[in-house]
Design a binder for these strands. Structure first.
Lengths: 199, 199
DNA sequence: ACCTATACCACACATTTGTGTGGTTGTCAA
DNA sequence: TTGACAACCACACAAATGTGTGGTATAGGT
């Protein structure tokens, strides 16, 4: 079922994918023609039909911008199991999975939000200052969760630890001591993800 | 500049946003009319112009499906500067920015890929085992970059350090010693991002 | 009573856009 | 040499689509 693409065909497909990603809508046939300096719309139509025949996209007849990309065939961010010498060859065996950025934030109906980390209290858990942490709001949490809590009016990110009848907010930095939870405390949510960007 | 929407106007905007999200392209005027059972395209056009005037979207004249949503007005993942008590109220002042997952991987024409981290050699840089690191392939790098390199046939993530005429791969873990770069060495790319998911 | 805004409708029109027909050129394998 | 396929072009046509003009009805404010 899966058929290989020529270099040119791949470029056409990639152009469409870029447009969808950047402008949130597919290009028209004439926009594609313009990009590749084709003087005939027929050329593009032939490409589209070919790409459709090979299963890379689906066309809706007589609709404007009716190119539906088949997502499983799109260039995505592959998670590689192993890297070979030279330029990273994307051989089939090496691809462990694909990264889906959308699913980082899970469901759309959940009110996920992000916080920028201040301070080094979770540094031993790999949460560095200036990292972004994604938070799923929830009022209860389990022992060992990394949570965002409000204590004495201040936001803090810590491990949640329960021992016998007591609960603690525990930093991941031996410079700081655990905080016994008493009053003036509320849980904001659970840290579900950490994101860091370099430069 | 920012003006409030009526219930109906909000529903029209929401419908457009849903279509963009689900089908990766905006609806046509007639598709909107059909959804809301408007018998005239003029009705929809009036809504669109109104929404444009209020800053919720931008129309491109005489183009099909040319509705560009103004993203800052759409529900996204907000990066909060401060969190208030109770459920996180998304007050205007608290929102520092919005998280754009797409821009994590930068340009699409770059062959970004991801690796799952094995081992604890970069743990003091906040890169933990099982984290995903996004890699931008490049053959040269600067002093201090965190890079993925192939040394003696093995993939490794380290700091790249240059001193006088020598270059080292330096772990971020004092259990391990820096590795002097000699032969059998090639740079795969630079670590541009770190992503961690809990549960 | 008058003005403004929202929320529609009907219909014509022009442009955009997809589609069909019929080509050319070159390569590669049978 | 024939056939298949990639990679194009020119041009006409019809359908999809946005736009313009000119309406009606209702509600709220002044």
């Amino acid at each position: 079922m899966k058929k290989e693409l020529t270099e040119k065909q791949r470029k056409v497909l990639q152009f469409i994918a870029q447009r969808v990603s950047r402008e949130n809508r597919p290009p028209t046939i004439r926009e594609i023609a313009q990009n590749f300096k084709f003087s005939s719309t027929g050329t593009v139509r032939d490409y589209l039909r070919l790409l459709q025949a090979k299963g890379y996209l689906k066309l809706q007849a007589k609709k404007a911008r009716a190119i539906e990309l088949i997502s499983e065939k799109l260039p995505r961010i592959p998670i590689l199991a192993q890297v070979q010498a030279g330029s990273p060859v994307l051989s089939y065996e090496a691809i462990e999975d694909y990264l889906d950025l959308k699913q980082l934030a899970c469901r759309e109906d959940e009110q996920i939000f992000a916080l920028r980390v201040k301070g080094d209290s979770m540094i031993e858990a790999g949460i560095m200052p200036e990292d972004l942490v994604l938070i799923r709001p929830q009022l209860i949490c389990e022992n060992g969760d990394i949570i965002v809590a409000l204590i004495d009016g201040e936001t803090t990110i810590k491990y949640f630890r329960r021992q016998q009848r007591k609960a603690y907010l525990q930093p991941a930095n031996n410079k700081y001591a655990p905080i016994l939870i008493k009053d003036n405390f509320s849980i904001i949510g659970k840290v579900i993800s950490v994101i860091r960007k370099y430069v």
